[in-house]
Amino acid sequence: MEHLFTNLATALTGWMITLGLSPVWADVILLLVKWIIIITIITLNIIILIWLERKVSAFFQERLGPNRLGPFGIFQTIADAIKLLTKEDIVPSAADKLIFKTAPMFFIVVAVMLYTVIPMGQGMEVINLNIGLLFFISMGSLSTIALLMAGWGSDNKWSLMGAVRSVAQMISYEIPLAFSLLGVVMISGSLNLQDIVAAQDNIWFVILQPIAFLTYFIAATAELNRGPFDMPEAEQELTGGAYTEYTGMRWALFFLAEYTNLVAVSALMATVFLGGWQGPWLPSWLWIIIKTYGVILVFFWVKWTFPRIRMDHLMSFSWKVLVPVSLGNILLTGAGIYFCQWMGWC
């Protein structure tokens, strides 16, 4: 079981070479196959996640949630998707049509790009990048542009307000996000995610870096635009923020991208802090799924408990609390590493 997928990939490459393809082309085709698999996994995940979020939030509120379509309402999301696909696609007449239409595509492309570097098991990733962690952060930062495009293109005050808010929020929270990961990088000595996982052989980084874990969790919630930091949507204030004017599948693309980001960030969290695919008995790819879903459930729990934070508090929280704390954590980690080396422990 452990090497199920890696063996499959090797077999596929071998088969293609026997067909007379050059190894380069075989590599390229394998890359494409990996992409298709990733997109399938993302779509499947989202279908499950949307259902799960509705179900979990319902349980928090003593409701039942979707329970009509299929067992436990599992097909609800599919019905929703069909509804969204068949809905009228409205483009406001005052909107900047090109920007309005490209924004959701850009958003989802950026979200899918995040999966390039996440190790989904032992030796299971699209590209084993040297600077995987940095790549992840930089790709995540691009989604601000998509939101800005959506907000600007809609030509709507609510949309623009939502976009400006979320961009300000995401740029502010990128800094503590990156800083909180630096502690882990300092201990493991690598930006490669597989190396980071390997470094957690004995002890998970959540124990070595609890402050970084917490700051990363908060900053990631803000980066994901999830409650209590769901500024760009903020239904109760901005009537949907940057997504106000979007309908049907265009709106659904934003929705999908948000969930795609959620899975990616949770998977990164599991990889960096919770030992990645490492774990006893079960195969590695199952472990990462279990851990990722665990993190996602915590995200749900937080969202469905807390009220939305106010914009100015949000900004000052980032700059006055999270950034100094994460910087302090870097200092602390450096001191700890120096102390360890001085004592000769590592």
């Binding site: 040297n130 600077i131 940095l134 790549f135 930089s138 930062s141 691009l142 601000t144 542009i145 990128e174």
Partner: peptide
């Protein structure tokens, strides 16, 4: 790769 990632993070993203 490092330069590329920084280029995206700083220039394209921010």
């Amino acid at each position: 790769g490092f330069l590329g990632a920084i280029q995206i993070l700083v220039y394209a993203g921010a």
